[in-house]
Amino acid sequence: MAHLLGHRNTALTEAGLFGRTGLIATLDPRMRIVMACLFAATVIALSSLTALTASLAVSVVLLALSRLPWRQTLRRMAMMDGFILFTLFLLPFSVPGDEIFTLWGFAASWQGLWKAIEIALTANAVILSLMVLVGSMEPVTLGHALLRLRCPEKLVHLLMFTVRYIDVLREEYLRLRAAMKVRGFRPGTNWHTYRSFGYLVGMMLVRAIERSERVLGAMKCRGFSGRIFLLQEFTLSPRDIVFAAGLSAVSSGLLILDLA
């Protein structure tokens, strides 16, 4: 159902994830979601740097098994790091402890530095395993798997609608931006820019609501009653069980390594 997300150059399909045949892609989506949560819960419980480094290594091994594009996936992970770098940078200076060096009268401590590294390792290990295990599914499969895991039906509907229309609305946004551009709009720090962007957002919302009215009409015409009809049955195969058992064993191993 990759066509639901449309063109290859748009955001959700940017990684070109779907339809790849790695080991992970052949496993049961429900099991992948559950295992991603379990692994995340394990990793945030770890505190020693050895165990955290090992967990990041586990995520990298999963990435290799999934045959996701290395560069793009790691680039995304690095983007998140750029996001949190600032908070992490402050930690050595705000945690009291043994001094490493002093910068403008502020002492950086080893304890703070370790804490920052600990957070960085945890965040990266969890987000990488999540992208590999869950992010490698088609969004529609994710919706169906969540429903099978007893997520509320309305929430799944909402998710599937959002997924379905992100690309449509993004194209509309790009069209509006192109229209602004041909009229000589160049964003800057001024009142005109803020007003134009405000109108742009307002216009997108008005159009989205009008579109949703048409969509609802079309759905009602086809007898929409709020039920989701699943297009695929998920079955747990022996391979799924082996994978789940393997990852659980690795997680327990990480916990033991952490205690040791």
Binding site: L158, F161, T162, L169, G188, M204, A208, E213, L216, G226
Partner: peptide, 20 residues
């Protein structure tokens, strides 16, 4: 549901706009 889903998608897209 369609309205909420559509708005949810528009907010997702709007969050990609970078304002100088």
């Amino acid at each position: 549901i369609p309205t909420a889903g559509m708005l949810s998608a528009s907010f997702f897209v709007a969050s990609l706009i970078h304002v100088p």
